[in-house]
């Protein structure tokens, strides 16, 4: 019974701590989600790929806003697409503009076969916007960005 009480106490504290940390994380996102930051991300993408991309809500790039270990940062990407012959994602390129080597990975999907969703773990050298650029079957280049803060350099 005593153990249960302790466990509940820890849980409550953990939740409170998480709520505080989460609040700080959200504040960070709010600061980063400015039109200037969006424009910077589009410019970074142009610098690295030579192409003009459009930020799109069809890409869902899910990463923690803060992750201590830069060696194994969780990465999940999902794209809204029916994956039919006439409407699908061909490939998605992932870039880390502040890493010593910018390309992270490129994922290739096949209509009717693979779903446009993937998870992996990546290395980040310093806090930065991670970019995902999807090439659709009509040639459109759609991008999502998410700011991730790391504490250790995952690239050395």
């Amino acid at each position: 019974m005593a153990e249960t009480t302790v466990a509940q106490e820890v849980t409550r504290r953990t939740i409170l701590a998480a709520a505080i940390a989460g609040g700080a994380g959200l504040a960070g996102v709010a600061v980063a989600a400015t039109p200037e930051a969006d424009a910077d991300a589009v410019e970074e993408a142009r610098r690295m790929t030579g192409k003009v991309v459009t930020l799109s809500p069809r890409l869902h790039l899910l990463m923690p806003s803060h992750f201590a270990n830069g060696y194994i940062v969780p990465f999940t990407l999902r794209i809204d697409s029916k994956m039919t012959d006439t409407d699908h994602v061909r490939q998605v390129q992932v870039l880390a503009p502040r890493n010593p080597i910018n390309p992270v990975a490129t994922f290739y999907f096949v209509p009717g076969r693979s779903e446009p969703a993937v998870s992996t773990r990546i290395r980040l050298a310093e806090p930065q916007d991670v970019l995902a650029i999807a090439e659709m079957n009509d040639g459109a280049l759609l991008m999502a960005r998410t700011f991730v803060e790391v504490e250790t350099n995952g690239c050395n």
Binding site: I101, V110, R113, R123, L124
Partner: peptide, 21 residues
């Protein structure tokens, strides 16, 4: 049906999860 190019920034012990129909 699914393919990935991996570069240096993919973490050690590369884990990839994906979905097929």
């Amino acid at each position: 049906v699914f393919r990935t190019d991996l570069h240096e920034a993919v973490a050690a012990n590369p884990f990839i999860s994906f979905s097929l129909r």
